[in-house]
């Protein structure tokens, strides 16, 4: 299997503050990759560097075989990203936001968007400012999935979602991955890692460690967080 994500010696600092240090990571095609670690460990910094939001200091990132800096736009054509906090333009209607995302991509995603909206029970007539966090997250999922990308990047996707929608969300991911997509899932929920991920890594204090297996018990999982607090 080819590497869909290939990070080499990534270092990103914010002035004197640590971001991530010398991170190297491979994610294989068809994987659902669990990305875990305490708050502030560097998960979002890694993801934001991959997507070009942050200008990293040293290292290299290749996504789908393309350089994350030089081929930035081309990469994003094939990526569906859902941020941890789903914010959109408050005055716009849900249906307009979904169409806007497709239009910027230059695609007609009407069919796929309708399918996902139905599965997640998205009310498309409401304005964004009328939505709760959970409902905004559902819109974010639609925007990330409607163009059927080759790579999904989800940053804490299920916080705020009710259990039924969470189940539908993972069913959708499994369907897309079975059809050839790859998924990077940043989460704090152990059950999601155990149940859905095929490989995993943990970030602590800006450094990344690959886990032998994503099937870990509660105590091991919590120890990652406890170690951080003690440090």
């Amino acid at each position: 299997m080819a590497n869909v994500i290939e990070i080499r010696n990534l270092t990103k600092s914010y002035g004197k503050n640590r971001g991530v240090i010398d991170v190297s990571l491979d994610v294989k095609e068809g994987d659902i990759f669990g990305f875990i670690g305490p708050n502030g460990a560097g998960k979002s910094t890694t993801i934001r560097s991959m997507l070009g939001f942050l200008k990293f200091n040293t290292g290299s990132i290749k996504i789908l075989g393309m350089d994350s800096v030089k081929d930035h736009e081309k990469i994003l054509e094939n990526v569906g990203y859902m941020p941890s906090e789903a914010w959109f333009y408050g005055s716009m209607k849900v249906t307009d936001v979904i169409k806007y995302a497709a239009d910027v991509r230059g695609l007609d995603c009407t069919g796929e968007a309708e399918k996902i909206c139905e599965r997640l029970k998205v009310n498309r007539d409401k304005r964004i400012k009328e939505l709760s966090l959970g409902n905004r997250k559902k819109v974010s999922i639609v925007c990330a999935m409607q163009h059927r990308p080759k790579l999904f990047i989800f940053d804490e996707p299920t916080s705020g979602l009710d259990p039924l929608v969470q189940r539908s969300f993972f069913e959708l991911i499994n369907e897309y991955v079975d059809a050839g997509a790859t998924c990077l899932l940043s989460t704090h929920v152990l059950s999601e890692v155990n149940k859905y991920c095929r490989s995993a890594a943990i970030m602590r204090e800006g450094r990344l460690t690959m886990l032998d297996t994503p099937n870990i018990d509660d105590d091991t999982f919590l120890s990652f967080y406890e170690d951080e607090e003690e440090a």
């Binding site: 736009e73 081309k74 990469i75 994003l76 995302a101 910027v104």
Partner: peptide, 14 residues
């Protein structure tokens, strides 16, 4: 300021 940057800049546009 409105936290919409992550949405906009995750779309394929420089």
């Amino acid at each position: 300021e409105g936290h919409t940057g992550e949405f906009l800049f995750s779309l394929p546009v420089s």
